[in-house]
Every structure is written in C-alpha cells, then in structure tokens.
Design a protein around this nucleic acid. Structure first.
Lengths: 252, 252
DNA sequence: CGTACGTTTGATCTTTCTCAATAATGGTGG
DNA sequence: CCACCATTATTGAGAAAGATCAAACGTACG
C-alpha cells in the first residue's frame, strides 16, 4: 500500500502525466520544479468541500481518497476512488467553485500546488496540456461507466464490476499482487459507490464468494476466477484507457 | 427548436467556447476559420460508435443527440443529452478510441472539424485551451450529478431532477420558453437516462402532473411550480456551472 | 477490558420491474 | 382527405430485487 519510496511527491504527478506518452525532458523538469507544499492528513480529512473555491491542486502522494456528493436527504454517493498518485484537483484547476467533495479514505501525504502555476504549465506546454486533458477525459470515461453501473446493472453485476475496476487500476500502478488486492474501503463505502445498501453489499459479496469468484480475508480481495468475475460484472477494460501492457499480469 | 439562423455552423462552437469568458478577437477568428464540412443527418444516425477511432470533432449545429453505452445484456444507458450548439467530440479529440456512442435524437446539421486542427488550437491558444478544458470539466460535473441521480435518488426525484436540468440548460441557450420546454426525447429514452423502465417513467410523470408540479401536452413540459419541481428533484444548479444571469428568467 | 466500528444474518416491507394489453399519435401511401 | 401502420403512451396485475429494521457477532484499538 505504501508503493515506492518516491521522496519527491511530484514524481507521482509526473508518472501519471506520462501514462499516455513521455514528456520532453524540459517539461519533466518544469513539473518537478513546481512550487508545492506537502501535508500529512488523517483518514476522513476533507481535501475539498463542495462549494469551496480551491486555490491549490492536490496530488495524492500516497493513500486513498474518494469524491462524493451528498443528497438533500443526507444519503451519500461516492463518485470515484482516487488511488495513490492521482492528481485530485485537476477538476478545480479551471473551475472556480467545486461541485463535489473529496475526502481521504486513509491517512495520506498530499502535495499542494498553486492553481496558477499548474494552469500556466498546462496552457503553455503542449505536451503537459495534452497529458492533463487526457487524464481528465479518462476520468470522464470512468464516470460514464459508473453511470451505466448504477443505472443498468443489478447488485451482483455492480459489485463484480467495481471489483474488476479496482483490480485493473491498482494493477496498472503496481499496487495489486497479481491475483488480488487490498480493498481500500468498507462495505458501507462500497454501497455508497454502487448505489446499494451496506446490508445488500454484504450479501452480494458473500454470494460472489460462495460461487467461487472471489475469496476474502479481512479487506483483501482475491479473485479466484478472474474471467468469471469479469463476466459477472459485464466488465471490459476499454473505458479505463489503460494500455494492455500496464496490466499484463491479468491478461493471461 | 430550430434556434437562430446562424448560417455559419462554427458560430455555435464559438458561442460555447465563450460561455465562461470572451476570447480575444484573434482567437475568435481562428475558430471561425477552422476547416470543416457540414452534413445533414437523420434522427437515429450514429455520430460515433463505441470502439471507433474518430478523426473528426463534431459540432451539433442544430438538433439533439445523446451519448450512450449498451451493457452486455443489451440494455441501454443514456449518459448525456447534447443540445444544439454542443461540441460532441471533445472527448475523442485527445483519446484514440471512443468509449461510448453518440446518436442523433433528431434530424440535425453537424459540422465536422479535423481532429488535428482542433487540437492545435487548443494547445497553442491559451484562451481556447482554457475554454475547452472548462467545457470538459462541466461535462464531467454533469456526469457526477447523473451518478448521484441514478445511484441515490428514487424514481420521482430522478425524473424531476432531469427535467430541471433540461430546463436550465435549454434556458441558458435560449431554447426554452420561460416556463416550459420541448422535451427532446421519448419516455423510453427518459427511462434509459434515469435507469428506470418506460412504464415507471410514465407513472412518475403522471404523478408529477397529478401533484401540480408540471403539465404536459405531447412532449412539451410546462412547469407549473418551478420551485416545487426543484424540491422534488433535489435540484440545485451549482453543478451546471452556469452563471445566474444566463438563466435569469428562472431565478424569480 | 470495554467501546466503537464494521460485518453478518434474519424477517418484513416497498419500490420498481415484468408481462400483457389497450389506446393514442404521427406519418404514409392512395 | 382517409385508412393503415409503426411508434409511443397508458393502464393493470403480479413478481422480484433490494431496502429497512433489528439484532448479534467480530475485531481493532485506546
């Protein structure tokens, strides 16, 4: 869960920017030279609250976070899970007021970069601009898949699907162990991500386990039958826009 | 529904780019000078199919379209509704393969702009880059709200919410008539947008009508009680990031 | 060792879906 | 203008997935 020992927290940002194509050396250095401040925050801390006017972009150096919105009657919908290395606040870099909240799932180190510094790089360095736009578009693609997940799949499919998504995303960052991963959230949070109740999530998880698709120990998910799990979740990785080689271990 | 008589179809793109801030005159001209081709297409035509490698960005000169994905068992989820003037393919401008389809709701005129020409403007003209990123981020914000809508609201709230969203978006483009608008879709499509069945959508619409929140004539929705409709849909316009003055008529 | 939080399980209730049939509407060809 | 057809809208009855309520059980942690 700790990942590599990158002591420079912007290395994470850089790695993400280079997901789709390498940056010129000059641009890489500009990214690493961005002014920033590192904070260590506890689980549950808010990085952004809906309605905020953020002045910083935040990069998750380690740890997990999630985006959420709360409805008028108080129920919560989780909108995405940020994994170590994610830039959390690209959304807010070009919009003045945040339309959702971001909260830490685990204790984390977070790097803050002033909004203007980040904007300047994006607008003046085409390679960096391209990379940022691609990241934003992939995030939108994942959101579209989540709309499908909660809108048109039953409970079992939803859970299987989100487990597959975690598996591929974590694998692509080297945070999974080949045939399993540490689920960074409680069943209640899983419920809020899938539009279900925690009671029902529990029953579905037990069902998947009983059917031999996964096994669980504490929060660790082991996929006993990866193909069957994908089928159960109607999962195809296309929407993640990750290259095959990033997740070779799962292609077998 | 026909909108204004912009004979230059890129005027629509320009208007959208200037939603958040005016472009310098030089940039405006670059946009209008973009190479393009105009096509007239029938309702039901696909502008993009999932899996395509698009080479053009498309701008909806008039008419309506929607984004959709289809699940393994054949059910459809509508992901967003594009209204006249929307640039449909910003998503694909920087990603090589499309993760969803776009289909026309009505007969439309569509302007195609080569991907590279568009990319170049975005990456070399900061004002245009900013505008495009903002549009992309607003679209992501709407997607997040849709996740909330299908994930955490009941049928009545979902329908009321989506009606409010249409009202504000159409109003902001001058396509509504103050206290009503022409719904561009069937109840079946409304169902696919809200994760419900058409049967249930019908019952909910009748319920909203019986309670005096809306009245309907054919596809025309008239909101008899705008405030009550917003309340019923747990609707707040923040996520649309439209300025108040764009929709002054509704603020009363 | 106790407290708080997360998980598991059972029983019951509601919302929404499914299936099926009927009615309205718009468009088409004659 | 009219008869016909395809699509869309409407309504009813029964079934099912998932929610709700309630309680017991584990486990981590101060």
């Amino acid at each position: 869960m700790t990942g590599s020992q990158d002591h420079h927290p912007l290395n994470n940002l850089l790695r993400q920017l280079e997901l789709y194509s390498k940056l010129p050396e000059f641009d890489r250095q500009l990214v690493l030279d961005l002014p920033h401040r590192v904070r260590r925050l506890d689980a549950g801390s808010y990085l952004v609250r809906e309605g905020d006017k953020p002045t910083q972009c935040m990069i998750l150096a380690n740890g997990y976070a999630f985006r959420q919105k709360v409805t008028g009657d108080g129920s919560r919908q989780i909108l995405s899970v940020c994994i170590p290395g994610d830039a959390v606040d690209l959304q807010n870099m070009f919009l003045d007021v945040s339309d959702h909240s971001v909260q830490l799932l685990t204790q984390s180190r977070v790097a803050d970069v002033p909004r203007e510094a980040m904007q300047e790089l994006v607008l003046t360095r085409p390679a960096i601009g391209t990379a940022i736009i691609q990241l934003t578009l992939v995030e939108a693609s994942i959101l579209r898949e989540w709309v499908v997940n909660v809108g048109r799949r039953d409970a079992r499919e939803r859970i299987a699907h989100i487990l597959c998504e975690f598996a591929v995303r974590l694998e692509s960052r080297g945070l999974a162990d080949g045939d399993g991963f540490e689920l960074p959230m409680t069943q209640e949070q899983l419920a809020d991500a899938t539009g279900l109740t925690s009671v029902h999530v529990n029953r579905v998880l037990k069902g998947l386990e009983a059917d031999g698709l996964i096994s669980r120990k504490r929060r660790h998910i082991h996929y006993s039958n990866w193909r069957a799990l994908q089928d159960a979740g109607d999962f195809s990785r296309r929407y993640l826009h990750v290259s095959e080689q990033d997740t070779l271990a799962q292609t077998y």
